[in-house]
Design a protein around this nucleic acid. Sequence first.
DNA 1: CTGTTTATCGTCAAGCAGACGACTATGATC
DNA 2: GATCATAGTCGTCTGCTTGACGATAAACAG
Lengths: 253, 253
Amino acid sequence: MPYDPSAFPPFAVTVDLVVLTVRRHALCALAVRRGESPYQGRWALPGGFVRGDEDLATAAARELAEETGLHAHDPAGPVLPNAAHLEQLATYGDPKRDPRMRVVSVAHLALAPDLPAPRAGGDAHSVRWAPVEDLLDQEVGYGREGEQAAPLAFDHARILADGVERARSKIEYSSLATAFCPQEFTVGELRRVYEAVWGVALDPRNFHRKVTGTPGFLVPTGGTTTRQGGRPAQLFQAGGATLLNPPMLRPEA
Amino acid sequence: MPYDPSAFPPFAVTVDLVVLTVRRHALCALAVRRGESPYQGRWALPGGFVRGDEDLATAAARELAEETGLHAHDPAGPVLPNAAHLEQLATYGDPKRDPRMRVVSVAHLALAPDLPAPRAGGDAHSVRWAPVEDLLDQEVGYGREGEQAAPLAFDHARILADGVERARSKIEYSSLATAFCPQEFTVGELRRVYEAVWGVALDPRNFHRKVTGTPGFLVPTGGTTTRQGGRPAQLFQAGGATLLNPPMLRPEA
DNA sequence: CTGTTTATCGTCAAGCAGACGACTATGATC
DNA sequence: GATCATAGTCGTCTGCTTGACGATAAACAG
């Protein structure tokens, strides 16, 4: 049977990105300010149309590079300095999610280390890192200093919440928390990542025992650093293990 | 800025279903035989186009009902007799995955109890439950009795593998295994579900202690049954808990 | 009645997690 | 330079969970 274009309704397909990082002890997401209607002036997740000859993962990696300058981490390739973890999150296709037309958005989740330089390709007025708490708690509508208190555009609050939940659960049983760290990092820095993502305090001694005792999680690089103050700490890299067994336990409550 | 149809390439959007059940000690998936080109005569996952005014979850539930007569389980609604668990799995959008046109498929995962009656809406020649092992091990190409040994159509082997992996991991930390059981079931039946999905043997005594000791997982209905032979077993229903803490541990290997 | 099957309860040792004490090595402050 | 604050690292102890497995219970088949 030949291809019959009338047999299916046409959709626009986009990728939206939940890009997370840990800055100053807080889990932050990348937000862009919309320059056009609908939701003009509101904050939204970065994203864009999938091109006609482009895979979904490719489109997400392209958008990520355009917005942040980060490369998607290729497990097969070499360890790049500016590499972020990128994975598909979920797909959102409510018929009314975009008032203009029928858009299906394949959301992706990216985890990036704290970027020393601001991202490329956007001016400071239209792109920012915002604490996810601020972005999600804006249903009632008040920012701290007359800041933009409107909720995220479209269904992006839901997408962001799903992405944050994915990140929170995935660092339990995988080594993904290292994606938030620079290439070399200390146990304390890794612990602060867990604390920021989970929003809890962890016992430094038990945490240290756990992560250094899990084979393949961390490999020492030999160096030490004192950038956090206090006694110098050993530097580590992410080891080859991707799944943690047994997992890190997220405290109750 | 008004809606500009030329600004994005049109896509067809479909839902494909990985419907799993446990039959005769084996994890089985629903497969349909393709009646048309491409891949005519090959087995594929059930699925179809998303309609113009339909949500993705709605489309998946509609396809599920059309193929199996099962309802998608609504957590808010009453417990229906023929209810299956349904969740979004992942989205597949390789530009070449369908030779006819650009199709993005939002795969969903459904977990159903073993259906006493064959499914409605399809004749026996074009729909069947097949052990996932058979469906996935056909890359080399030989079935047991001259059976259809060709691999699944399109990228459906990959989708099925992803769905199976999701199910395998999700029954570890959630109560989803009960979705494979009838409304009332015994601990032994639940154990056989785990054994079939994971492909391992579990100690009946430790399993019994674990599931009956996890609060909210199982609630006794008071009845007993002897349908498995041997000493009568207590009947249970799924309790309210959806997350198991601590999780069921899948044996190493 | 005896053997088989399945369910259920108990015991024990090993391992892990949470609570927390103690010590170490830095920089900051007086 | 002594003291303090900070952060890192090593231990100890206790309770809980797990995995291995013995023992008993209640049905059915011969």
